[in-house]
Design a protein around this nucleic acid. Structure first.
Length: 598
RNA sequence: GCACCCGUAGCUCAAUUGGAUAGAGCACCAGACUACGAAUCUGGGGGUUGGAGGUUCGAGUCCUUCCGGGUGCGCCA
């Protein structure tokens, strides 16, 4: 059940257009839009119908617009229709058509806004996917929120959504992590080695010197005593301890990451392990699949131009013909020791997602992975063709977040230990403010996150402003409960209210805004732009605050008037509907609708 | 050197995916508290959408090319 009044009117416009021009091709009709107007003088909504069909119909836009106006004049929802500008048709609906949206909201509840545009298409949204080599920090946070809200949004728009996390638990990084934990383990046992002496025995040297591994090393010491060390608490042969230490460390790191995600309100449906795929030989299977399609060859790549090729030497590699699918160069799938590259594993992983049933895959990535996009989309195109399983990959890139504290940028440096963990940020700012603020920018624009601004209790802070609007709604409804009795405030009861008295422009502005929510959900989902939800809620809150204050200047616009029960009932219905839409939007964002601000 | 992302009011950002006269907040100026919550609201000034071409009924949005910022560039993940 959808309540999208713009979609409804679009159908009526298209029907009218068919009567005017019976021979129009379907693809011309597909371009017809009915959109809210920017200018009040242009009515409630406008359609470009006459403009987009002018060429196929070989008629002038103005002629078509005039005919369309005549055809729409009889529509029971339309008060006025007029041609304007280069060929727009502006529509003004009867107030009753707008007022009817209020009971529709009340009866739908928080489900209001849900739509069917997704048509049950299966979407796999992969996000966060932080390496389990350290705690989550603010760099991961934006992608986590963007991915989570995008998934919620698409589900509301009628897609069948799976939220997925890819654990990068294979490769050299994880081995280095195990060595770092092993050092903490030896320390816990009181080794006589210095850090530098130990580092000298680690292939590639000791990485990950952060103290978050101390606790894990201590636990290992408690569990295994000196069994994992050589006599005298010295470095033992990796074969004797590596598996144990690595598995234990990975499990602990993933526990920590899941805890952090939980605090952020992010929950994935599926966690996929790179290592599990690698051990099952998935990369090899995938490479053979591509080889069967003629997309694999052994060859030598050209050195990159302009970049100093000091240590460059030509090398024969197993290459994937990515250039056949729009990438710049062909990409290696095997390292010189024959093992799969990260990219090869990732292709296998995407093949796995396809096999499990996805029509669309969306990867939410940090901008530092921007160079990865063209090769992965090329790989998915190749898989789609080779396996004859149509599936597309889209990438949502999240630009860097610059954190400001007291107006000063916080330098993020792992070496200096000055980076802010996600947990720090959540403790300082709170989950709601973090989530909302992360969506106050387009994801592909760089963002400054000002800690002071995110907790400010003023209009300039959208999360506060929106929550305050909801709290005010609840405040009115509490008072209304005292006045009318709680039984009179059920959605079913309020939906029966006579709304004829809601004629002020501020009333209708709020109602029109609420009525645009289903349209916002649909368009934001189709555009993969979750930030639009935050902006919608801000605008909705502004409409509500404005109406509230109108009641100061004009007592007739106050929500509660004891001597006018019928008007009060209508306005309480309006307030209840506004609160419902705010909750519906906040639910998508994963932000709490607070009852009061005190 | 090449690829991708970004460039909009003094500042931080929108702009219904190609729609009509480009909008909000902050800052600045002038106003509204015996009040359903003034943590709010009303009004005002502020623009060659980085520059230049092009596509068409119509461009902040698409194409080309410069300028400026960011990210990345063969066996790291």
């Amino acid at each position: 059940m959808t309540h999208n009044i713009f979609a409804l009117m679009r159908e009526r416009v298209v029907a009218a257009l068919r009567t005017v021009l019976p021979d129009l091709p379907e693809e011309a009709l597909a371009r017809v839009e009915v959109t809210p107007t920017r200018e009040a003088a242009h009515g409630d909504m406008a359609t470009n119908a006459a403009l987009v069909v002018a060429k196929p119909a070989r008629r002038k836009p103005a002629e078509i617009a005039a005919a369309l106006v005549a055809a729409l004049a009889g529509d029971d929802q339309v008060a006025t229709a007029e041609a304007a500008g280069p060929g727009f048709v502006n529509l003004r609906l009867h107030p009753a058509a707008w007022l009817a949206q209020v009971p529709a909201v009340l009866l739908a509840g928080e489900a209001y806004g849900a739509g069917t545009a997704g048509q049950g298409v299966r979407v796999n949204v992969e996000y966060v996917s932080a390496n389990p080599t350290g705690p989550m920090h603010v760099g991961h946070c934006r992608g986590a929120v963007v991915g989570d809200v995008l998934a919620n949004l698409m589900a509301k728009a009628g897609f069948e959504v799976t939220k997925e996390y890819y654990i990068n638990d294979a490769g050299n990084q994880v081995t280095a992590l195990a060595w770092a934990t092993y050092w903490r383990y030896l320390q816990a046992l009181g080794t006589t080695l210095s850090e530098e002496e130990f580092s000298g025995q680690v292939p590639g040297g000791l990485q990950y010197r952060g103290d978050y591994l101390v606790e894990i090393g201590t636990e290992l010491a408690a569990l295994h005593g000196e069994a994992l060390a050589a006599p005298g608490v010295q470095v033992g042969a990796p074969a004797d301890w590596m598996d144990t230490v690595r598995d234990f460390t990975l499990a602990r790191m993933m526990d920590a990451i899941r805890e952090d995600l939980d605090l952020l309100g992010v929950r994935h449906d599926v966690f996929s392990s790179e290592r599990a795929l690698a051990e099952a030989g998935a990369a090899g299977v995938t490479i053979e699949l591509l080889r069967g399609a003629g997309l694999i060859y052994e060859g030598v790549l050209e050195p990159p131009k302009g970049k100093a090729p000091e240590d460059w030497e030509p090398r024969e590699q197993t290459l994937f013909r990515a250039t056949e699918f729009g990438d710049d160069v062909d990409r290696p799938l095997r390292k010189s020791d024959g093992s799969a590259t990260y990219f090869a594993n990732d292709i296998a992983y995407h093949a796995d997602k396809m096999r499990r049933g996805a029509d669309v895959m969306i990867d939410v990535l940090g901008a530092d992975h921007g160079g990865y996009v063209s090769r992965m989309t090329a790989a998915v195109k190749a898989l789609s063709a080779a396996a004859n399983a149509p599936c597309t990959l889209e990438v949502v890139l999240c630009q860097m977040v610059k954190v400001l504290k007291d107006g000063e940028p916080v330098r993020m440096s792992k070496r200096a230990g000055t980076y802010i963990t996600l947990r720090d940020l959540l403790e300082e700012v709170g989950r709601d403010a973090v989530r909302f603020t992360m969506l106050t920018r387009k994801s592909d624009a760089q963002m400054e996150f000002d800690i002071a601004a995110a907790v400010a209790q003023t209009r300039e802070n959208p999360v506060f402003y929106v929550q305050y609007a909801h709290a005010r709604c609840r405040s009115v409804l509490r008072a209304a409960g005292e006045m009318l009795g709680a039984a009179a405030l059920t959605p079913q009861d309020l939906a029966q209210a006579d709304l004829g008295g809601l004629t002020h422009e501020a009333d209708l502005a709020l109602i029109r805004r609420m009525a645009s929510w289903p349209r916002v959900v649909e368009s934001a989902a189709l555009a993969r732009e979750p930030h639009r939800i935050a902006f919608f809620l801000y605008d909705l809150a502004a409409d509500f605050h404005m109406l509230w204050n109108r009641g100061r200047d004009d007592a007739a616009l106050r929500f509660l008037r004891a001597e006018h029960p019928a008007e009060t009932r209508a306005r309480v219905a309006l307030v209840a509907a506004a609160a419902t839409v705010i909750r519906s939007g906040l639910a998508v964002m994963g932000v709490t609708p607070v009852e009061e601000m005190r």
